[in-house]
Structure formats: C-alpha cells, structure tokens
Design a protein around this nucleic acid. Structure first.
Lengths: 368, 368
DNA sequence: CTGAAAGCGCTTACAG
DNA sequence: CTGAAAGCGCTTACAG
C-alpha cells in the first residue's frame, strides 16, 4: 500500500495512536469500498446502495470504529462541539443550565465546551475568541454582558443561541425568561397575604434580569395601589453578602417592613441570616420571598418561598434550539413560564410591621 | 504558488474561514521563511536565528495569527485541551475544583473539556472514551468510581491526574485529601465542647471519602475513650434529603444525642431542617458540624461549623500536576491540610442531651 | 540553522 | 451510485 518514499509511522505520540487507532480508511478496506463511501454513509451525505451500506455498517461494528472529531473538524469544518459561554463554571444558578445543555447535546453526539465570562464583556469576548479558535460548530451564550451587536457579528460566522435577551438576527436565536412576570407573582403573593410594607432587594441593575424583576415588583405595588417607597428598594448584587447588608441597612434606617422580596435566592439567604441575627423570625415577623428556586432553597431554614426559574429546562431548550439551527430549521421552543413555589418563609401579615432590632413579635399564627 | 489542478477554495464552510482565516502559511510568506520555521518558533522546537525569529514574531503580531488547535491536534497529536471527568457539572462541591482547573489551565494556554461521570463507573468510562476520541492531551479525574486498574490503563496512553485516591503508576499522578484527619478535627471539636452523645451521618460508603470520614469519627471517639454506638451512626448518601431522614430516624428511635457530625455540608443542611421541624435549636439544643465548607455554609442559619475542604485549591493543584506531567516533570504538589472552621452551629453541651421531640431545652448560654 | 515534503484522518467537489 | 484526489492547517523526520 505504501508508495516509495513514505515515512515510517511516528511513535506513540502519533495522533492516531491515542484514541484507538482504527481509522475510516481501515473500515473502507475491510468493507471493500472507498473511504469516500464510508464518509458518505457516516454523514448521510448521499444515497448508497443497500449492500455497501450493510458491508460498511458491519465493518464499523466489527472494528469498533468511531470517527475522529479532530480530523473531521479540519477537513469538514464540523467539530461536533458547541461552545457554551457561562458566567462562572461553579455558579449555583447556571449550573442547572449547563447540565441541561450537556444532556441535550450528548444525545445528539455533540460535546459542550464550557468557558466562563465572569460577567465581563471583555472576558466574554475572549471566550468567543477561544471557542472560535477551537472551531466549535455553534455558540450558546447564557445571558452575560456582551452587546447585541457583538452577538450578531458572531452569528454571521456561526450559529448562536443566546438566553436572557430578545433579539432577531440571521443565524441567531435568542429567548428570554419572563422575569417581570415572575416578580409580579412574588410581589402579588406578598400583597395577597396582607403585606403593605414590602422591601425589595435588587440585583445588579446592569443585568437585564435585575431590571426586569425590579419592574415587576414596582408594577405589582402600583397595580395594588400601594406606593413604591424608595427607602424600601435596596441595592444588592445577587450575592448572599449583599442580601445581608441590604437588611442591615433597612434595619439601621428603621424603615418599617413586614416582608422582603429578594431578586434572587442567594440574596434571600443573606437576608434571612441578617434577620436571624436581629432575632427577627421568618415568617413570624417577616415574610421572605426569593427568586430562582435554587436546589438549596427547599432546605433553607425555613424552606424558602420563591419563584421557580426552570434553569435546567432553559439549558435543554437552548441546546435544542442550537441543534435546530444546525439542522437549518428555524428554532421552535416553548418557553416555560415562571411559577411561584410557596414554602414556609411567607405568612399572612401580623400587625404591626416589624420595625427594627428589639421590636420583635411573639405572635404565632398557624402556617397558611 | 498553485500547481495546476488545485481546487478552488471551498465556500464559507471552509474550516479556515470560521476562526479568522490567517494561517501559519501566511505568516511564513509574510516573514519570508518556511512554514517549518514558523512552526518551530511557535513550539520552541529548535534554535532559530534571531533575525528570522524577529521577522516571524512581527508577522504574527501584524497578522494577528493564532495557531489552529484543530490542525495542531491532527498533525502533532497535541490539542492543547485537557479532559476533566467530574461527577456532575452542577455539583456545588466539585464546582470549586472546576473553577480552579479552569484558571490554572487557562494560564498555560490549555482548555478544559468537562464531562460528567454521575458517580457511575460505566459513565466515567464513557467519559474517558469521549475525551480520548477528542484527543485531549491529558485527563484529570476527580474522584469517581473508576477502578485503579482502569485509570492505570488510561495512563498508558496519556497523562492522568486523579484526586481522591492514592496510586502510583507510570504517567499517573494521584493525590488525596486527608478526610480522616478532617473528621478527627470535627469530632474532637465536639468532644472538646463536652459532647458525649455525638451522632454521625455517613455518606455513601462506596465513596472512599465517606469511609475515611467515618473512620475519623470513630477514631476520635475511641481516642477519647467514648463508645461508638451503632445506633448513633446513620447512613446517608451525601444529599440534603438523606441528612434530613437520618435525623428523623434518630429522633424516631429516641436515641439520645447532643451533637451531630454530618459527613458533608449538604447532609448537615438537611439535618438542620429536620431539627428545626422538631423545634430543636442549633446550637442551643444540638450542636451541628458539617464537612466541606461549601460556599453556602457561611450563610446557613446558623452559619455552619464545618471542616474546610479546599476544593478550589485541589483543582488548582490537579491542573498544575497535569501541567508538570505534560512537561515531563514528576509532579510536586503541596497538599493542603484540612482545617476546622468554627462558626455558630456548635456550642458547649448543656445537660442533659436532647432526646426527642418535645423535650427541648430553653437553656441559653453565651456563644463560645 | 532551515526548507521541502509527507502525513495526521477525515470531507467533498469532480468526474465518471 | 461511487472512486481518486486534493485539501483542511499544522508538525516533524529527513536532508542539507
């Protein structure tokens, strides 16, 4: 088979050596067809006679062949990998989305390549760069701070799916979660329980989610004819620490409140700790609602009432939209709606509203 | 430059097109040298005259060239990517390790490829398979259930770093965390506080960590001359739910206890909730210690005393060991020791030990 | 020190 | 329907 002048195969470092040696060429030889034919069968690229297909399938099975994605990437431009820009690989919130993406891509033979943008447009741009240098077949961007223009630009080169924004561009599919609706649900729940003095702990307003949730809080108060008191709107940044500090400020300022709605569960946990330190009991003295429904929310003390954000499903949907884009179809996804999960951190308001340290109430009412 | 018979370049789908078109060949042309020379400069493979190097460096900078890892992978067998077998991409515990790995690899120009084994040897083997088909340059295995033999076998083909086990094989570097020592620390802390009836919630004993931590608990009791009562050793599986159930069993069985040591924080959170439901207060009635020091432990109510497991550092170390292996050096890593973090869930024992529902104590003592 | 050339394992026009 | 051949963008013996 070798012509004169062929080199000896290289040592164990040879690229082939690593993954199990059997190549498409070997399959072709075993099946008595050309490599082109094997490739076509693998890719469903052309109609092939039944007997050749059978011979090739048999050879593939017998030899245990699996195509080398690296070579495939070089030759055909498809690496069977999808880049995923998340914000932090260990985010308790986005983790669920990553798992969804992993599952959906795996089922289609694709591998995810996770990179972290750290909520920084520059880092995210670096991520896109890395992913493109690795020739991923498509990129999923989970929220983040990249401009719509940057995303659209990327989408000119390869399919892009983005969450956390609304945007229509060729090759780009974006979908959002109804943050406003979720915040409405949470606030209305509190209002329905008789609360009037509802404090709000906002996330970092540079995140569109934070802005939308704040609008939901305001909207619910306004619809109910309640005033939106700026003193009750605290600025947080989605971390536990900021939730804790917000409550400290609230109490320090002696602003009356009987309920708190935190723009995410992590801040709600911080808020709960601050209340605990001030001997204010949840829900006896203060009702508390979060947003996201992290896995840990149901084991908080008390278990946290929160807005369920189906982040795992969102991951599944993002991956499935990518797969559709890759198949040349316009993505169709049914976006899941927000849903309030009532647990044990909220209760009907007991007069009067908790004020500040020391002024706590011993009143107990049966849980809902 | 083209010989007769060359094809036209392919359309936008061409592999080059995607990532920015500039190739090593273009750099060579611009610098007036051969591609071989550019390659050698890139890889530091050979000594090159200063003027050529300068010309090449200039051309690289001007053209904004960055080598295509895919082509590199095919040709040289190096993909500049490292496979990482974790257990679940959204694990609150392993997440920290992933972040450490990401940081350390990124600094060296490598990309991690994360895959999830789901605590299942078969899945983990599938992960290894996937990673090898993608020609990663090395594999990091975070604990898991793969046999030492399987790991050693993999290490014959490419460098492997494993955590959560001790094992010496060619091409394989493994290191463990001192789980036994950590459990000793936790238990001794409780004993030092005067606790005698210390219940233990074990993790799934198929995990080596769980087994080691149990030994630490036992060892500490024995050293202190305290009996190890089987009724106080509850079987959990590292989940919050199992921690909760363990405490339910303990209380249902009316086994006396004044302290609980849970083999991980997640079970401690579940245990805390069960205690809360039975109106047993932490730490007034029952002291509680966890293990791992998850990010959320400091915002638990009350903030959880726990054994700090430097999982982020372990990730950093694993990656750095891999880098050393890749460089042909024997890895040298200083393994971090376990450390007890005393927060607010433990307190000196108050007579008598809490027994069961209803029998709670109002005794308050100042915190430590 | 440096170049020409073969090769990595695929894919895909091109030509039957 | 199917093959022969060129090419993807690099690396690396081989030969100066």
């Amino acid at each position: 088979m070798d012509k004169a002048g062929r080199r000896q195969p290289r040592g164990r470092a040879s690229a082939a050596g690593a993954a199990g040696a059997v190549t498409l060429e070997m399959v072709a030889a075993a099946a008595g067809v050309s490599p082109s034919t094997v490739s076509r069968i693998l890719n469903g690229t052309a109609v092939v006679s039944a007997d050749k297909r059978a011979a090739v399938d048999a050879a593939i099975a017998r030899l245990g062949f699996s195509p080398n994605p690296i070579a495939r990437g070089l030759a055909g431009g498809r690496t069977m990998s999808i880049g995923v820009v998340t914000q932090a690989i260990d985010s308790p919130f986005y983790g669920g989305a990553l798992r969804g993406i992993e599952i959906a891509l795996d089922a289609a033979g694709y591998s995810p390549l996770f990179v972290s943008g750290h909520w920084h447009a520059r880092h995210e741009a670096g991520c896109i760069q890395t992913l493109r240098s690795r020739h991923v077949d498509g990129i999923i961007v989970l929220t983040g701070r990249l401009s719509d223009a940057a995303l659209a630009e990327t989408a000119r080169a390869l399919p892009v799916v983005a969450t956390g924004r609304r945007l229509e561009r060729p090759g780009l599919f974006a979908f959002d979660f109804d943050n406003l609706g979720g915040a409405l649900l949470a606030t209305q729940h509190l209002i329905g329980l008789g609360h009037r003095d509802i404090a709000y702990i906002s996330g970092d307003l540079r995140h569109p989610d934070a802005e939308q949730r704040l609008r939901g809080y305001r909207g619910a108060l306004e619809s109910a004819g309640l005033p939106v008191d700026p003193a009750r709107v605290l600025q947080g940044d989605f971390t536990e620490a900021s939730g804790l500090q917000a409550v400290e400020r609230l109490i320090g300022d002696r602003t009356p409140f009987s309920a708190i709605f935190a723009a995410n569960d992590q801040m709600a946990f911080g808020a709960a700790l601050a209340l605990h330190r001030h001997r204010l009991r949840v829900p006896d003295d203060v009702s508390l609602v979060g947003f996201d429904d992290l896995a840990s929310a149901q084991y908080a003390i008390p278990p946290l009432t929160t807005v369920h954000h189906p982040i795992h499903e969102l991951g599944l949907l993002a991956a499935s939209a990518m797969l559709q884009l890759l198949a040349g179809e316009p993505p169709r996804v049914d976006q899941p709606a927000p849903r309030l999960v009532i647990r044990e951190s909220t209760r009907a308001r007991s007069e009067p509203a908790a004020l500040a340290r020391g002024q706590r109430h011993a009143v107990r009412r049966p849980a809902r």
